[in-house]
Write a protein that binds this DNA or RNA. Structure first.
Lengths: 134, 134
DNA sequence: TTACAAAATGTTATATTATAACAATTTAAC
DNA sequence: GTTAAATTGTTATAATATAACATTTTGTAA
């Protein structure tokens, strides 16, 4: 077996849930939601999440320990990710900006390290939350 | 009380430990190391860590759940952080590049969000680890 | 078409990371 | 000195994640 063309049963169940969600989901909230579909243990969830992250179908929002479906059709492997996070309503959006990704992919620091991956999280207030406060 | 000029006892103990460490430290490893100095409970560690992050003396490496002393004398409040992380030896270095910080601080996405903070983590192989493998 | 290896699954237990809730003490400004 | 904010101490528990082992499914190549 060289590659899986399709997602396995558990992977599909968990991806569907994340993909339909308007907000990032946490592992145990996923577990709760898929128990009726036969997934009973945390490890079943984490294994599916690991795989889905690996193949780029979902991303982990590190500062939130939560998972979001990839909103960028071109990123099949998640080696360059950027997100905006509203600190008020917690809305998370994947940033797909070729200028930004070019800048960061080409970034070289003085330490001589070769980067093959990055993750960027911006924090602030989304439009809705800004107008609520004014 | 408007501001603390100096760190409190627990904050100082924990900052000293992190500051001396060549690598990011995890909360429970910190706890283990400061038990001989009278800090017995996780919450004592987490409270000090929270405060130290808030005032910019340390940063949290989100992808590692670990803490590193600020290596950038100018960042008293940690609202714009960037790190390079070696995926082989786990060495973490704070990136202090004014070009990068200018680019990211000025970055505007099409969603109209106003960013007031960001965190960027680059992954790759450090010089040492590259030469080991070749 | 069966045999094989990789991938995925199932299950129990446990490790790791982090916070809730409440009481007491210390600190700095007035 | 009084006061309010900050810090500390303590017990319990919540939330996040992995170890270890057995079994089953899947794709592919003999």
């Amino acid at each position: 077996m060289r590659k899986m063309q399709n997602l396995s049963k558990n992977q599909q169940i968990i991806f569907d849930l994340i993909d339909k969600s308007p907000e990032p989901l946490k592992a145990y909230s996923i577990l709760f939601n898929v128990q009726k579909r036969g997934i009973k243990a945390p490890l079943q969830v984490y294994r599916a999440l690991d795989k889905l992250v690996e193949i780029g179908k979902i991303h982990k929002i590190e500062s939130r320990n939560a998972f979001i479906a990839c909103q960028n059709s071109s990123c099949q492997i998640s080696k360059a990710t950027a997100f905006s996070i509203c600190e008020s309503c917690e809305k998370v959006t994947e940033i797909n900006n070729s200028n930004l990704s070019k800048y960061l992919t080409g970034f070289k620091d003085k330490n001589g390290m070769k980067y093959n991956k990055y993750n960027l999280e911006f924090f602030g207030l989304c439009k809705k939350c800004i107008s609520k406060k004014s």
